[in-house]
Write a protein that binds this DNA or RNA. Sequence first.
RNA 1: GGGUGAUUAGCUCAGCGGUAGAGCGCUUCGUUCACAUCGAAGAUGUCAGCGGUUCAAAUCCGUUAUCACCCA
Length: 1020
Amino acid sequence: MTMDKTFDAASAEARITAAWDAGHAFAAGANAKPGAPAFSVVIPPPNVTGSLHIGHAFNNTLQDILVRWHRMRGFDTLWQPGQDHAGIATQMVVERRMAEAGGPGRREIGREEFLRRVWAWKQESGGTITGQLKRLGASLDWSRNAFTMSGAPGAPAGEEGNFHDAVIRVFVEMYDKGLIYRGKRLVNWDPHFETAISDLEVENIEKDGRMWHFKYPLAGGETYEYVERDADGRVTLRETRDYISIATTRPETMLGDGAVAVHPGDARYAPIVGKLCEIPVGPREHRRLIPIITDDYPDPDFGSGAVKITGAHDFNDYGVAMRNGIPLYALMDGRAHMRIDGLPYAESAAIATRAARGEDVGDVGTVNLVPDDLRGLDRLEARERVVAAIDAEGLSVTGADGNPLVERKKIMQPFGDRSGVVIEPMLTDQWFVDTARIVGPALEAVRSGRTKILPEQHEKVYFHWLENIEPWTISRQLWWGHQIPVWYGLDLAAEGFRDDEGDGALDHVELFRLLNEGGLVHGGEIHHAAADFAAVADAFRDDIAGLPRPLEVARVVEVADRAAAIDTFARALADYNLTQDPTHLVYPVWRDPDVLDTWFSSGLWPIGTLGWPEDTPELRKYFPTDVLVTGFDIIFFWVARMMMMQLAVVGDVPFRTVYVHGLVRDEKGAKMSKSKGNVIDPLDLIDAYGADALRFTLTGMAAMGRDPKLGPRHVEANRNFVTKIWNATRFAEMNGVFAAPAQGMPQPAHTVNRWIMGEVARARLAVDEALGAYRFNEAANVLYAFVWGQVCDWYVEFAKPLFDGDHADETRATMRWVIEQSITLLHPIMPFVTEEIWALTDARPKMLVHGDWPEYGAELIDPEADRQMNWVIGLIEGVRSARAQMGVPAGARLDLIVTEADDAARAALTANGPLIERLARVNPPVPGNAGRGMIAVAAPGASLALPIGDVIDVAAETARLQKAAARTEKDAAGLRGRLGNAKFVENADAQVIAETREKLAELDEELARLKSALAQLAAL
RNA sequence: GGGUGAUUAGCUCAGCGGUAGAGCGCUUCGUUCACAUCGAAGAUGUCAGCGGUUCAAAUCCGUUAUCACCCA
């Protein structure tokens, strides 16, 4: 066998991936020792339509290292793969593709057809990322691939699985326990996707904005003394005003104002609190009046200190409105256009005015306070019109120049993280998880250490978020997702439905009142949750059973929506009226069209992928999982929710450790983004340098709590490392190291071989310690320094002269072992090149992916071999340094004269003569005296001299030795200072003191040798 | 406004109580039979500033400055 000069990553990776696949190398439990403990990891599921970006590469490299390490150690290992259906993102992609193809939109083709296309797209693109993960070498058990929408209705063949069952079951259980509720709340509304989103999906970004100042005239032309004072209470402004000044960044929302609020302690407005003022927009004849109220929310020092309250379109205002009983007037539709539905403006304004005077006007959902000329406009267009109208009327506050005062300033605006459009707070009916009721165990689990978050600083962030948790909006007005398993029915028990005679039966007069008086249209709804229609029908039957005759026998049927339900029910009543046949009566129910937030289902990822709600062997064996490796960006989205949901559903933590890694940045530390154009594609790097180089680079940068900064040159450097390992093996192979059969751990006699075995043991201990503490970068650095710095730089060189001689056999055996141990230790980080070397160098019973992780340790360290080889290395470095600095040609072979040597030094010289001769390029050492034309080299216990010619540059040699002496002197002085300090000797560890003394002695000796050399030089 | 982290060689970063390291870059030398995707030698740092704790501080504490990120 001959090896090429370099490792051909591209061809080897494909071949090795195929071999791992064929051997089911990554299957759960592969390579497990009998009775071994389990080690399980679930992948953070990538979006099914996604492709591998550098963050995935980083995340999965770290997981793979842990997984491969445990698998080699014989744990019963599972790394669970899968993908997330990613509701909004996927729906967006499919809709965009449909638009690009010029076809009809989703509303035209309908829900069923649209979902069919999403599934088709999923099946087409879902494999992309799995293929890319394989290229990275990720050792996931692909036979268990999971999907968060598997088993959903409409899923095509090949998408079986029970994730959907798990999601629905959890929803129903939480619904039944009252942990999920429906409510009309102000939510973040994405006008692009026309769906509610959660707080976490909103990004607040500071943008240039405008702030307008308007006058709200007091009702009836009233006036008051407006007085401003400075900090000392001196009056700085006093004037009579007939208005209150309001600042706003969103003038269009003035249309829906329900009040003006001032701080209760604000003396400026005390005279007018409780009075009414006028909103300075809308048709003059219907100008609305709103009350001036007090609330703690307004900041007296900000703007005018008075705040307009639009409860239906601002979260802060919503709070004020709820506290003060201010009506919430919705102004916009789902696209954030001004409403066109509801009552005409005049009627609406009249109702609102009655409300402002304190009358109870009931539900204001149909009240539309958008003036007729603004209805249907985009909100931004409406804003300009509103401003223009107020300016025209002279009700803008003017600045010093007499023009309307418009401040240009930075304002925080909410944006949808997927759509990028400005989010609109909207009053809608949504489903919520009552997170406050399930957060306790999730907090407790981390506080008690049942689940550990690393690095620890993230625990604080976790606590802070969970301690201030808001209800979680889980309904989304999308189609791609788990449809909410809730059915609604008309509330026939509500008022408006009357049994006049109280005889427990309905006559046709009573029945028809439901229809004629619009009782159904404006009536309420009841709802139940269940896994399917059959189950939910039972629940409704229980409700119906309590109704008067003949409705108690109505059949529960499913219809499309509320309108269809009313229609169906009316027809049934009509039919009954004619036939008096109660079997014709039906009670129509309709299913909630919304789907669940993607994170609701991915929140069940740990149990869902293991087969829950079935009681599977995998669930019993691999749950709770051992470690979750993830980025800090989804601690709230995902980690915290998995904690809450797993604890709520199965009463256990989903994982014992959460390892939080950083965000991969570009070389300059900037976030990668498409708009900046600094995105690095991991596949490009794999193509250019191989997966091992990329993995090793990312691992070396994975310092806990830091963001890796990645550039191609880093990967290139580690590709060189791959080449280095490859060539060390190639050298060994060329020297017959792998020719003889392996014999297990060698028992060499030669110092060099004994020394390197100790170095292997040190590396193994350090790697295990580093990985055990999730210090990935340390593991990579240890291996790099060991393989390159020890094995390649020294051991291979030392071994060369040993290949012919008394120690040839043991040296071959040792080198074989060293290389096999090196690639074993490297395999979790660099699986491909190590697997390739493993296969090339011998016929092996099993692949390295199932290799045996070593367990030896310090017992392999031979202190004497250690001491001697360090001495030899020091000497060689000393000679090389002296030669180079004195300009001796690299090829010249010099004599080596030993002018002085103690027994240890003499022994080391004798035992390692050939090594020293070769690496220092000197002749065999001979005793002698320093003399003319020689340069000096000092080593512990020995002084040596190198004749480099008849005439040397005495000045240069003197300078060289003086410089070395000065450096040694300085170090020695520092140590002497410490040892001279009585407090140091008193307080420091005995070992530290001993080490310091030893070090000082060495330095003193070196210094003496240098000085002696200088003296001799001067004497010549 | 609140929180978290960072500031170490020209660049990118490790180290986080015992007197500074790596990679890349730079300089000089080298076609010695594994590797030029290499080898040898070398230069470069008041470890952001100030103050404190300690026998001892890049490392712990406080503070200032600058930068970054998260949450309002």
